[in-house]
Nucleic acid binder design. Sequence first.
DNA 1: ACGCATTAAATTGCACACAATTAAATAGTG
DNA 2: CACTATTTAATTGTGTGCAATTTAATGCGT
Lengths: 156, 156
Amino acid sequence: MKPTSGNAPDSLLKLENFLCFAIYSTANAVTRAYQPRLAVLGLTYPQYLVMVVLWERENQTVKSIGEKLSLDSGTLTPLLKRLESAGLITRRRDTVDERQVLIGLTDEGRAARRRAEAIPIAIGKAFGCTLGEANDLRAELITVRDNLIASIDKAK
Amino acid sequence: MKPTSGNAPDSLLKLENFLCFAIYSTANAVTRAYQPRLAVLGLTYPQYLVMVVLWERENQTVKSIGEKLSLDSGTLTPLLKRLESAGLITRRRDTVDERQVLIGLTDEGRAARRRAEAIPIAIGKAFGCTLGEANDLRAELITVRDNLIASIDKAK
DNA sequence: ACGCATTAAATTGCACACAATTAAATAGTG
DNA sequence: CACTATTTAATTGTGTGCAATTTAATGCGT
């Protein structure tokens, strides 16, 4: 009996064998699963991640948020402006180092945290796996992700 | 000794505990890792996935490609137009059912397959895990993904 | 203090994702 | 056959991601 796939050159280019596609399509599904729950808070999924980072610690720079989320200013600047005009965050230049922009929370942004706390529970159920399985999967993904990032950096 | 995270309401909203963020950030890393390798073929990562689907079988409808990749016409129509103007695919209305558009490969599109075959090997190395580990991870992700999709569909 | 490299955000341009709507063709029903 | 419902792509509009460039501020060596 042969393994799952056919002869070598063929099986390499089969979608169903792609770990990358499993990651890609799962990420899209995550965004779609979050969308209705975040819509009531007026947030998109990336905006929600930024809020989570700020709920952990207020007054971070754009760079600090970007490092935690692996996003650059090209993504964050317009996103943060939208959160600001939604009244959830504040943006102000650091007076000590005026290159930096400090992102803080408004009262409304702080208050949104309570309503957000129900979301991980609901999504956890939608994943359909135990907390233990989720943690194992998370750890494996982070290993793979950090390997990928290392290989990208090495190429530079 | 307490487990990894602090008290309950707090740990639920910690980025490092999020399976969803592990998925999201790994997917972004995948795209970045593919980018330099696909650039020599003149493809983006989603375009590469479409080509993989077409290399498996030519002359599929937009709908068929969309089902395989979980993408709708809003994403695919402009993407396919770009692949067409790049000379890799053909788009023509089905003469039997004129609602459908059949996507085929040009000689150049068919030829690109050979050059693409080296990519999964290189990316596989960048993942930094064994084939067996990659297959396990892929299977777990697909389970989670299909659970998520089922929960989305159920909500409708 | 001067000049140059470095750093942090913002900007620009392109390509997704996806919800919602539209347009056209086909299928199904009485 | 007429009529409505369904199906398939295309379109529209919003919000990411990210490469590349720009702008402004800081750091550093002489």
